[in-house]
């Protein structure tokens, strides 16, 4: 056996007691063997270190969710974010509104109105839905005040009361706004087929299902199937990886009604719920039927 073999057997505990004794005697008198042993031991340490680094690199590539974001977000940033979102939303809202008077006038179709009723303003609210109604209703006055101030500095004759009434006017014509787009899209669909309005409605819903920001957090052990709304965002707690989920929105402008569809069940969501609560499934059969219809499952 050469030195390499001897040392390998020694380090792997592959020696019987006699061989071990002989090796240890040799070791005390043979400097070369001793050095070689040191080298072999260093190789093993190197292998161990390489494996350690390999495992750590693997862990490094694991996305650890929004934890670090949660830690780094402070309250002021959150508030600033909400204010900016409100402003952007209001901007989109008012821009969109400017176009409606030209468009909604020619369209007023009976079919479309039934679709409208079923959809409850779903399809047209995409821009609004980016900002939740609560933002539109509660934040607009604040935001408009900010805008008023800037406008007032440029045009001193503008008064805040006027601008408030402008805001109200902005909301009013928007009630008909859905009709225009519904009519427009619906007309195309009806031209191709004889689908019932319900079907059209459900198609529209599908295209507007996810106007709500959703975040999933499965790191909280206590919450296995829960939700909450925070800053207009929906947080789902638990393991939602086992299937696809859908958020169904109704009446996005006024009283928004939300449902979660997950694994063949519907769960009602209260967008004012800021506490973490358990998801409760919808039991009402007729409501389930309607929800199915809305999802186009009939």
């Amino acid at each position: 056996m050469n030195n390499f073999d001897l040392i390998d057997a020694y380090l792997d505990n592959d020696m019987n007691p006699e061989e071990l004794q002989r090796f240890e005697q040799q070791l005390s008198s043979n400097a070369e063997l001793k050095r070689e042993l040191g080298f072999q031991q260093e190789l093993i340490v190197g292998i161990q270190q390489a494996r350690r680094l390999e495992l750590k690199a693997r862990l490094d590539n694991v996305a650890v969710g929004g934890n670090s974001v949660g830690q780094s977000l402070n309250l002021s940033k959150l508030i600033a974010g909400i204010v900016i979102l409100g402003l952007v939303g209001w901007g989109i809202y008012s821009l969109y509104d400017d176009e409606t008077p030209q468009e909604f006038m020619p369209v007023a179709d009976a079919n479309q109105e039934t679709v409208e009723e079923l959809i409850d303003d779903q399809s047209e609210n995409v821009p609004d839905a980016e900002e939740t109604p609560s933002v539109a209703e509660s934040d607009i006055p604040k935001d408009s005040e900010a805008l008023i101030n800037t406008e007032a500095s440029e045009n001193p004759q503008l008064k805040s009361e006027e601008s408030v009434s402008e805001v109200r006017e902005v909301i009013k014509p928007d009630i008909k706004k859905p009709e225009t787009i519904t009519g427009f899209d619906g007309a195309e669909e009806i031209a191709d087929s004889l689908q019932a309005p319900g079907t059209i409605a459900s198609k529209k819903k599908e295209s507007n299902l996810s106007t709500i920001d959703v975040a999933i957090d499965n790191t909280r052990k206590k919450y296995t199937f829960h939700y909450q709304f925070k800053g207009g965002k929906l947080f789902l707690y638990g393991d939602f990886s086992s299937g696809l989920y859908e958020i169904l929105e109704f009446n996005p402008r006024n009283d928004k009604t939300l449902f979660l569809y997950f694994q063949n069940n519907y769960y009602s969501l209260d967008n004012t719920q800021e506490k973490i609560v358990r998801l409760e499934s919808v039991k009402d059969r007729s409501l389930i039927m309607k929800l199915k219809e809305a999802r186009g499952m009939n």
Partner: peptide, 11 residues
């Protein structure tokens, strides 16, 4: 599973 564990208790 090690990755799963890492994620689970990271926070």
């Amino acid at each position: 599973t090690l990755e799963f564990l890492y994620k689970k208790y990271y926070r």
